[in-house]
């Protein structure tokens, strides 16, 4: 996975850093080295650039630059959009605002709900045996943990 694909609010671990030589030194110096943990803090208007915390510093990177950093997820919690088909998950948190929350409640999805991913693209889940279709944008705001 590329760093630019990691969802806001999650933590990832760097696998490799592949910048052109003139920038590589500075990027490594800032602490973007293999093995380091990066937190995706927030994104600017239009979703680009984004702020990351690495070794205690907040650094901005454009998505085109974050593309050059290969990462893997560390936290057990990740967005539903990254879940795998056929596996069971428990809902841990929501990243959306009040509208999103009421939408979730109306679908019967709450923190603690147990779900199963039935298919992807589009995502469809089963909750209490009932199938529910979920948009990709919504799936990014539902944080789950595998059971």
């Amino acid at each position: 996975m590329k760093l630019s694909e990691a969802v806001v609010g999650t933590k990832v671990k760097i696998v490799s850093v592949d910048f052109p030589p003139e920038l590589q030194g500075r990027i490594l110096g800032l602490g973007f080295v293999p093995g380091s943990i990066v937190e995706v803090v927030r994104e600017a208007p239009f979703g680009d650039p984004r702020v990351y915390t690495v070794h205690g510093k907040m650094i901005t990177l454009r998505n085109s630059e974050a593309d050059l950093i290969e990462v893997e997820p560390v936290s057990k919690n990740f967005p539903l959009s990254m879940a795998e088909v056929g596996k069971h998950y428990i809902v841990k948190a929501f990243l959306g605002g009040p509208f999103f929350m009421s939408k979730m409640r109306s679908l019967g999805i709450n923190v603690g709900s147990k779900i199963m991913v039935a298919s992807k693209f589009p995502i469809s889940i089963t909750i209490n045996g009932k199938p529910v279709r979920i948009g990709m944008g919504m799936a990014e705001k539902i944080i789950v943990e595998e059971i």
Binding site: L30, I59, T60, L61
Partner: peptide
């Protein structure tokens, strides 16, 4: 050609 942005907040 675009130019990179690496900046500390």
């Amino acid at each position: 050609q675009p130019i990179p942005l690496v900046m500390e907040l």
